[in-house]
Design a protein around this nucleic acid. Structure first.
Length: 493
RNA sequence: GUCUCCUUCGUCUAGUGGUUAGGACAGCGGGUUUUCAUCCCGCCAACAGGGGUUCGACUCCCCUAGGAGAUGCCA
């Protein structure tokens, strides 16, 4: 049988960078080896279950362009692919484990377990269940039953010996059974399975051949192996992926910044960039290649190039990738991507879009190489759509000049506006240089007041292009306004 | 506390006994330029420490240190 892998998220939170990295690697591994990629929903935590999270999962995967061969919406021979629809299976197999002596009912209350944990922590003892119910006298069991206590089912971890398994990346891993989490719960008192049980059963019955998952699962892997052996099933191939960390070297979380893919989408990251960058955390192709499309990765991905050590998520490098992919877009593509942001910021009405198509084309052209993320459009282009805020006279007056001189410059430009608007690009440049020379100031000092007057800032897209897009009326008005502000300044000073 | 995993520039990494330890991001400097950015060029910067093995260790072994993860009726 061919390779079968799965991504098995739990719909308890938004899809985050670490999660999709796992999804991506599974997907690429399957594709590159001609295998199947399966999506399975592990919704056994009924308390944290969230519809929103489930929708987010589909949105994110679709956005990334990741498709699965079998899954809840697609079906397949091994369904259902939602764990909450498979509970009978888990119960049945948990029961079998009890019957075969590999598991037992535990009647301990949550309170007792909490107390136990606290005491262990305080006394610096080993943490974990004390196996109180592992050998319960019949009489006591009868008592619990009479009281209607709902038991859980716990796995009997062997008290002696060791469990060995092979990890593709890490090699053989040996763990003394006594060090395995003592008798973990398999079936909760609400009748739902825990991750350990459901995961093992599903992977077995779905014929999963390789398990690629984050290294945070490494400590519980021996436990899973014990389970496989208790069932008498073949253990799949394991490959535990290095974790994705935040800037402080700890598990990536909210306090490091955005981690949910949804947030990245909102800020204007492109799927190409996220996919490319995330694939390079813990994996590399060779000594220099950085750019990969999804299609390329589907062919080139190999497990052998996986790295063992955890990787820190670098927001700046992601920005660099994103800028690259933005510049990779055609102007029309970029325009289409930018429009939703212009609407969101209240710059344009959707209905007016056709009227200002030309303006938009112009803006896209001058903004393209200045965008790191799509939402940067707000700062870069707001002055085309909104009246500019008050800027201070200090901002508009070049360092070496005074208000009077600045007024002179702006007046000069205003006078020649018709020429500027009618001439071709290099002719305008010629004219501006000539005017600057006439005024006896450097070109930079000549242009800066214009830039501030028209864009409200001393950092802007190319100013001549900008003002041509703005139109002569608005430009004139903004120049006049600036001149007035400066005149007041002279009057007051 | 216990167990497990990890350890090359600030960050992502290449490297599998003999290299001036390579690339990228970031940073810094320069060029192009009307600002910013793009683009181009350059600079800075690493084998955690200590023992072995070997003619020779970033590469193999051991120890130490540091980091991380797990230790849930969460996944």
């Amino acid at each position: 049988m061919g390779i079968r892998v799965r991504y098995a998220p739990s719909p308890t939170g938004l899809q985050h960078i670490g999660g999709i990295r796992t999804a991506l690697f599974n997907y690429f591994f399957a594709k590159s080896r001609g295998g199947k990629f399966i999506l399975r929903i592990e919704d056994t935590d009924r308390e944290r279950y969230s519809e929103d999270a489930l929708n987010d999962l589909y949105n994110t995967l679709n956005w990334l362009g990741i498709d699965w061969d079998e899954g809840p919406d697609k079906g397949g021979e091994y369904g259902p692919y939602v764990q909450s629809e498979r509970t009978e299976l888990y119960r049945e197999y948990a029961r079998r484990l009890v019957e075969s002596g590999h598991a037992y009912y535990c009647y301990c209350s949550q309170e007792r377990l909490e107390e136990l944990r606290e005491r262990q922590k305080k006394d610096k003892q080993d943490f974990g269940y004390d196996r109180k119910c592992r050998d319960l006298p019949e009489s006591e069991i009868e008592e619990y039953k009479r009281d209607g206590v709902k038991p859980v089912i716990r796995l009997k971890i062997p008290l002696e010996g060791e469990t060995v398994f092979h990890d593709y990346l890490l090699g053989d891993i040996t763990k003394k059974n006594i060090d395995i989490s003592p008798d973990p719960v398999l079936l909760k008192s609400d009748g739902y399975p825990t991750y350990h049980l459901a995961n093992v059963i599903d992977d077995h019955f779905m014929s999963i051949t390789h398990i690629l998952r984050a290294q945070e699962w490494l400590p519980s892997c021996p436990l899973h192996v014990v389970l496989y052996k208790a069932f008498g099933w073949k253990v799949p191939q394991y490959c535990h992926l290095p974790m994705v960390m935040g800037s402080n070297g700890q598990k990536l979380s909210k306090r490091h910044g955005a981690t949910a893919v949804r947030d990245f989408i909102e800020k204007g990251y492109l799927p190409e960039a996220i996919l490319n960058y995330v694939s390079l955390i813990g994996w590399s192709y060779d000594d220099s290649r950085e750019f990969f499309t999804k299609e390329e990765l589907e062919k080139l991905f190999i497990l052998d190039k996986l790295n063992k050590s955890p990787g820190i998520f670098d927001y700046k490098k992601l920005d660099w990738f994103n800028g690259h992919y933005i510049r990779q877009k055609s102007n029309d593509e970029l325009k289409a991507l930018l429009v939703p942001y212009l609407i969101k910021y209240g710059f344009v009405e959707p209905a007016r879009l056709p009227d200002i198509s030309g303006l938009l084309d112009g803006i896209v052209a001058i903004v393209k190489e200045r965008l790191k993320v799509l939402s940067d459009i707000k700062e870069l282009a707001w002055f085309f759509f909104k009246e500019i805020d008050n800027y201070s006279p200090e901002e508009i007056i070049p360092k070496k000049l005074n208000a009077a001189k600045t007024i002179e410059i702006l007046e000069s430009i205003k006078k020649h506006l018709p020429d500027i608007f009618s001439r071709s690009e290099d002719k305008v440049e010629e004219l501006i240089k000539f005017l600057a020379e006439n005024a006896g100031v450097k070109l930079g000092d000549f242009i800066m007041p214009l830039r501030v007057a028209v864009t409200g800032s001393n950092v802007s897209p190319p100013i001549i292009d900008s003002l041509k897009l703005l139109g002569i009326e608005k430009t004139t008005a903004r120049l006049e306004r600036a001149i007035n502000i400066l005149k007041n300044e002279v009057g007051n000073g």
